[in-house]
Design a protein around this nucleic acid. Structure first.
Length: 590
RNA sequence: GGCGGCGUAGCUCAGUCGGUAGAGCAAACGGCUCAUAAUCGUUGGGUCACAGGUUCAAGUCCUGUCGCCGCCA
């Protein structure tokens, strides 16, 4: 392994709207890749800070609240704990997963706003908005419905038409009506708002995207950002709106307005880093990830978020000054299910918490990593899920561990056999397993997770091949010492595979760790804590990996080490479940 | 409408700098019996969406067409 010193790695993950349960598309797109990457970097000895939180602002929350007849805060209190539960059950190891309705987040956001204003990257301008005369309020995007001017769909929202997918400006709608009172007593009214001056940020952003240090970016992300920036057509974007739920504009006279959710959500990365620093009792620690020049930040997002993370957020950081810009934005494409795009409104979803009621997390982690949507949209099918679980995870890796452990447990007195002299074949396999750390590590550093897990699985195949060639079950009758050597080599490789698989399959690697006779913790501990600020309190998820016993390097298994009674690492699934799960989904399809 | 991406084996997907098309699964045959009927080996299978162009050479670069996806207006 390389001897370079620990590097600060910020793993920033998209902030999910806190208005419902998350589905496997969210997980495959951002959270799982981020977790695999973070776990690997920790094993590697780097200092990882992985942050995100529930996005509690914006109209998706307030609309949902009004539908249920409860307050926005109650919506958050309903779903935020469920998101925390999902991360724990799925093993998504956030150092801090918080939310945006905190005093800290408000403060950091308002500081950003005032600094942008002071640095002259914010200007004021008037714009036309729809105003409901009956409700006496402005109607932000989702509070108005009407006929789409492009496709004629009668239920288009003020921000987007769900039928043709176009983004809209609410004043474009034909026959608009207020979604609150249902009335059509609307008028166009001028309203003053603050705008982020992206036009002014365009030139420095072009310099940044062309600084010659973006070769490791995914082409789709880099091409998109570069094309947008080089067009030179960035224009001011409103950062306030006429809505009460949100972060107050920190200036007198704007009490009826709030900061637009897109502006405060991305600031969450910094706010959460600061909150984490407070929580661990080192209030200035965040600077190590945000200000050290050699620190690296990785933003794990879905492709719909590329404009915000590869253009707008870097622009905001430039406008603020003194903070590191993204080192990489490994955005994923979409995960479709059974040929259709996931959609909450159409009830075409596979929800994370729901499937964990019926299946273990590691099969999901395996399937979603082995077929991650890194280069294009991916079609997830239940048949594929069962197949990959049964024919790859169970058959290749689970069975390798089980056949070797069972054999040693029964025939070698429940201990790691003591090897004799190693032959060429033994040495070759051990060398291969040692080299895998560099090979897989390089792929993980480059965020090529699918290639990485395929590589690890390839080593498991090789170990199966080795066993078949050596036939220790035959040799033990004629030459027990040779069989012992073979089984030692095999267990040694399995012990290394355990580490190589650890970022991907933490639960089963931990289980295997104990079967191999170890007692310590290799996956870390997740816990939820309640944090009290001056007036508010919130729940947040934390992670403690300080006691991690493993490193990303070839292990050495001690001969004679007592083994524990082995059991299969993974459950084989009945093929009928594919049909059952698909039928279940079709039944809910709206 | 503008911009960007995608279209590769029956299925799901790789394919770096242009150099005779790859993996897994599915199918067929064989070996083994330690293991969750798991494993290991062998074999078959492609007009790289379509039409042009550049080149000694194109899945890869360029132009156009068709289809799908996303972003922006």
């Amino acid at each position: 392994m390389s001897q370079e010193s620990a590097r600060k790695i910020l793993v920033a993950v998209a902030w999910p709207y806190c208005n419902g349960d998350l589905h496997i598309g969210h997980i495959a797109g951002a959270y799982l890749p981020a977790d695999i990457f973070a776990r690997y970097q920790r094993l590697r000895g780097n200092d990882v800070l992985m942050v995100s939180g529930s996005d509690t602002h914006g109209t998706p929350i307030t609309v949902h609240a009004e539908e249920l007849g409860i307050s926005p805060r109650e919506v958050i209190d309903r779903y935020h704990p469920r998101i925390l539960e999902l991360w724990q059950k799925f093993g998504i190891s956030f150092d801090l997963f918080t939310e945006t309705d905190t005093e800290n987040h408000w403060q950091v956001t308002q500081d950003f706003f005032l600094t942008h204003l002071h640095n002259d990257y914010i200007y004021k301008a008037e714009m036309e908005q729809l105003f409901c005369l009956d409700c006496q309020r402005f109607l932000a995007d989702r509070y108005v419905e009407g006929t789409c001017p492009y496709c004629g769909y009668p239920h288009a929202r003020g921000d987007q038409c769900d039928n043709c997918g176009r983004t809209l400006d609410s004043i474009e709608l034909i026959n608009p009506h207020c979604k609150i009172c249902g009335g059509t007593n609307l008028e166009h009214r001028k309203t003053e708002h603050f705008f982020l001056d992206l036009g002014k940020l365009n030139p420095p952003l072009v310099d940044w995207i062309n600084d010659g240090q973006k070769e490791h970016w995914r082409p789709s992300v880099l091409n998109f950002a570069r094309a947008q920036l080089e067009s030179g057509e960035l224009h001011g974007r409103p950062i306030t709106r006429d809505i009460k739920w949100g972060i107050p504009v920190p200036l007198p006279g704007y009490e009826q307005k709030s900061i637009y959710v897109w502006y405060d959500a991305v600031i969450g990365y910094l706010a959460a880093s600061k909150e984490w620093s407070q929580n661990v009792g080192r209030p200035e620690a965040w600077r190590e990830w945000w200000q050290q020049p050699e620190a690296r930040s990785f933003y794990f997002i879905g492709k719909d978020n590329i404009p915000f993370h590869a253009i707008i957020w870097p622009g905001m950081l430039i406008g603020y000054g003194g903070l590191n810009l993204p080192y990489d934005v490994p955005a994923n494409e979409y995960l479709n299910v059974e040929g259709q795009q996931l959609s909450k409104s159409r009830h075409w979803v596979v929800e994370g918490l729901d499937v964990l009621e019926r299946y273990d997390p590691d099969p999901w982690r395996y399937v979603l990593a082995a077929n991650a949507p890194e280069t294009q949209d991916i079609d997830f099918t239940w048949e594929e899920f069962v197949r990959r679980n049964n024919n790859e995870l169970v058959a290749t890796w689970g069975n390798l561990a089980n056949r070797a452990l069972s054999f040693c447990y029964k025939r070698f007195d429940g201990r790691v056999p003591t090897p004799g002299v190693l032959d060429q074949r033994d040495e070759a396999l051990l060398a291969l397993s040692a080299e895998a750390f560099d090979k897989v590590g390089a792929l993980l550093d480059a965020v090529k997770l699918r290639n990485a897990i395929t590589e690890v699985m390839g080593l498991a195949h090789e170990a199966n091949r080795y066993l078949n060639e050596k036939e220790p079950w035959k040799r033990i009758k004629t030459d027990p010492a040779a069989a012992a050597t073979t089984m030692y080599v095999c267990l040694q490789v399995i012990d290394r595979l355990k580490v190589l698989f650890l970022p991907f399959l933490p639960f089963s690697s931990q289980k295997l760790h104990t079967f191999l006779g170890y007692d310590d913790d290799i996956m870390g501990r997740q816990f939820v804590e309640k944090y009290k600020e001056t007036e508010r309190e919130h729940l947040a998820l934390r992670y403690d990996g300080s006691a991690l016993a493993e490193r990303w390097e070839p292990t050495t298994l001690a001969p004679g080490q007592p083994l524990r009674k082995p059991a299969p690492l993974f459950v084989k699934l009945d093929e009928s479940i594919a049909e059952a799960e698909t039928a279940r989904m079709l039944a809910h399809l709206g």
